[in-house]
Design a protein around this nucleic acid. Structure first.
Length: 670
RNA sequence: GCCGGCGUGGCGCAAUUGGUAGCGCAUCCGACUUGUAAUCGGAAGGUUAGGGGUUCGAGUCCCCUCGCCGGCUCCA
């Protein structure tokens, strides 16, 4: 038996090894139980693959990103096997790994019920216990078609194989690679076939190598992600390299649930959604109202400094405005239906006076275009920056409404900038700086940008216009130095956009600000200005919202801070707690001092015990708790208690006031 | 919009096979006045989301509407 030479890479160190011909990858890693697959010349492969001469082999650890993907993908296979054993009529969709888990789609006559998930999970554990081997074999297209004759969705994927991955469903790449087709057989200990699936692989060596998994939920999902297709039943699950890793993940989910803004909105008395008003329509309670006011006030101040002019426009308009803008053509479904007014009829019901359709506005831009057009404009007044907290109403589909982050009524911090071609680039760049600076002031400081380009099936305007607008945005985005991610086809019908994505305290990203360069609206509204040479020109228009909407931004910040807002945003900044009733008047004086400095302070005069008052202030996440008893009164001092429980006792009252005022003014977190 | 789940006082939860709606917190009243996350006692509060049906009897079963939750699709 001849030897072959392979290079084994462990922790970055390549080592040449000579092994006998026919050696399989697993033999190199026999002493490394965490290695479940290997890169062979850069390609992920099963450990059962045979190594060729000069191969470069690197083990894939089950706990690495690549390893977890393989683990989860293999677990998805076990799920599918269990489902087909329990529900023989179930047809297979696709089953890829996803962030933190996996799913598999099935076409079944009856949607899965919660009880079914429990049964399926039990069956999966049985399969795992059996230690079935994942065995790979190559097949021709015709062989695959013959073997998978009962699986119409797999056949469809085979048919798509050559068509380019963009046509296939997201996640389908794990089933069908660019190369030849492969089928994975699940073999029992005795070598008999338990199950098989079309799959590119690689997989774990055996089902026994799944250390921890759980099925999380079932839901419907459209085949290949299109509403036009049939809905399949999707089962989601998660799988981890150890029980501990899975527990940590489940704990993270619980932590995330605890900072859910919908829950905190109730607990902190910030806002609510009374059924009587309607879905997706929030009311802000006094504490949420203060938060909102502070956010708006600061935003207004920054807009004044940045040279914006403040405008105001109504909530409703005749439909013709949105015919001009094109919104009725493209987004009528997303608008509240019109109010038909002023129509008159005679006794026989015959219309004697035609009525008018009024719409709730879903956008502010057409109004701002009218504002621009209200008189002749000179190049001297450009760039003209109009700002408005504009309330808009969108008839979002019932299934998408979610707390404050997806609502039907919202207030945008909306702005439209009209400028010359020469000013466009500078304007976008300074806007980006402005946006990022503002978001940082609110405590978000990790960003990347997304560039959404034309949707070829939904747009107006010429190729040149789109190219120019997209280039302008791309250049500004690249100049920002932030990571830029492409979102092909993600633009609105009238303009490409840059969106600022912000990462929150637990690593989730949220789309915040958007900046769009629009050539269409100025044209549709016939906007122009007189240039220095006396000619009439069409201005460029930039749409931008920094918060997106105030509602959404409050939702995001609530989750980012888990309700523990920095002092400048906190609805109640200070709660003063007397040790006993006789200390109330002393604290009232300190509180009055704070109040004159603009601090939002409450003295807790309830007849609860002071321990209870501390608990209440903690639950309300008040940044500063000031406590005073005999010792403090005698020393004209107060004792600080911070949200993390740490103490700072005997602080002179004047210093305490100064400390609080400074924290608020500097907008720091405490 | 689609699929599934759910809907009990302000909030969080109970109510055996259909058999007279309970608890904790919050609220109100009273007592207590205490140095760092829940003092004690009492009172009040619900047409069980709304409507219809089955039944001697419905919070429990069936239908419709509304709303919420989890996904999918969508998001100007």
């Amino acid at each position: 038996m001849s030897d072959v030479s392979v290079t084994v890479v462990t922790t970055g160190q390549p080592v040449e090894r000579s092994v006998s011909s026919g050696t399989k990858a697993w033999e190199l890693f026999a002493d490394q139980p965490d290695v479940i697959a290997a890169y062979v010349d850069g390609e992920p492969r099963d450990l059962s693959c045979t190594l060729s001469d000069k191969a470069r082999v690197e083990g894939i650890d089950i706990g690495s990103d690549a390893g977890r993907d393989i683990l989860r993908h293999s677990t998805a296979h076990v799920l599918a096997q269990a489902v087909q054993e329990l529900f023989p009529d179930a047809r297979l969709g696709i089953g890829p790994p996803i962030a933190d888990g996996f799913y598999y789609d099935f076409d079944v006559s009856q949607p899965f019920k919660p009880d079914d998930l429990a049964r399926i999970e039990t069956r999966m554990r049985k399969i795992i216990k059996e230690g079935q081997r994942f065995s790979r074999r190559s097949v021709s297209d015709d062989e695959a078609r013959a073997e998978l004759a009962e699986e119409p969705y797999k056949l469809e994927l085979i048919g798509l194989k050559g068509a380019g991955s963009s046509d296939a469903a997201e996640g389908a790449a794990v089933e069908v690679g660019a190369d030849g087709l492969t089928i994975y057989d699940n073999l029992k200990r005795d070598g008999s076939l338990a199950w098989k699936d079309l799959c590119r692989g690689p997989h774990l060596p055996t089902t026994k190598r799944i250390p921890a998994f759980t099925l999380t939920r079932s839901a419907a999902a459209y085949w290949r992600g299109s509403e036009k297709n049939k809905q399949l039943q999707r089962i989601y699950g998660t799988a981890w390299e150890s029980k501990e890793a899975q527990d940590a993940y489940l704990e993270r989910l619980e932590q995330a649930a605890r900072r859910d803004h919908r829950r905190l909105g109730v607990e902190l008395d910030l806002f609510s959604f009374p059924d009587e008003i309607g879905s997706g329509l929030a009311i802000f309670h006094p504490k949420g109202g203060v938060l909102r006011k502070v956010m708006e006030d600061y935003s207004r101040q920054r807009h004044v400094e940045a040279g914006y002019e403040f405008v105001n426009t109504p909530h409703i308009t005749k439909g013709s405005l949105f015919e001009t803008s094109g919104h009725l053509q493209w987004y009528a479904d997303g608008m509240y239906p019109p109010m038909h007014v002023d129509e008159e009829r005679d006794g026989e019901g015959k219309v004697t006076r035609a009525g008018q359709d009024y719409y709730l506005k879903p956008m502010n831009c057409p109004f701002h275009c009218l504002l621009y057009r209200s008189r002749g404009r000179s190049y001297r007044e450009l760039p003209l920056r109009m700002f408005e907290f504009g309330s808009v109403y969108r008839y979002e589909k019932s299934g998408v409404i979610h707390g404050l982050t997806r609502v039907r009524g919202m207030t945008q911090d909306d702005s439209h900038i009209y400028c010359t071609e020469d000013q466009l680039q500078d304007e976008i760049r300074s806007l980006l700086t402005f946006v990022l600076g503002l978001l940082k002031d609110y405590g978000l400081d990790e960003f990347y940008l997304e560039l959404s380009t034309r949707n070829d099936e939904k747009y107006v305007g010429t190729d040149e216009q789109w190219e120019q607008a997209t280039d302008a945005l791309r250049q500004a985005a690249e100049a920002s130095g932030l990571d830029l991610v492409l979102d092909p086809g993600g633009a609105a019908f009238y303009a490409p956009k840059i969106s600022v994505q912000a990462r929150d305290a637990i690593g989730r990203t949220w789309q915040m600000s958007t900046i769009q360069v629009d050539f269409q609206s100025p044209q549709r509204f016939g906007l122009e200005y007189t240039s220095s040479d006396g000619s009439r020109r069409e201005p460029y228009m930039i749409h931008r919202a920094l918060f997106g909407s105030i509602e959404r931004f409050i939702g995001v910040l609530t989750e980012h801070y888990a309700g523990a807002f920095p002092p400048w945003l906190a609805p109640v900044q200070v709660t003063a707690i007397p040790i006993a009733e006789r200390h109330e008047s002393y604290l009232a004086k300190v509180a009055a001092d704070l109040a004159t400095r603009g601090i939002r302070v409450d003295v807790d005069r309830s007849d609860d015990r002071m321990q209870k008052k501390i608990r209440n202030a903690s639950l309300q996440k008040v940044p500063f708790v000031l406590i005073a008893g005999d010792r403090d009164v005698d020393d004209n001092a107060v004792s600080f208690r911070y949200r993390d429980g740490h103490q700072d006792n005997g602080v002179p009252a004047a210093e305490a006031v100064a400390r609080i005022v400074e924290a608020v003014e500097r907008r720091v977190q405490v």
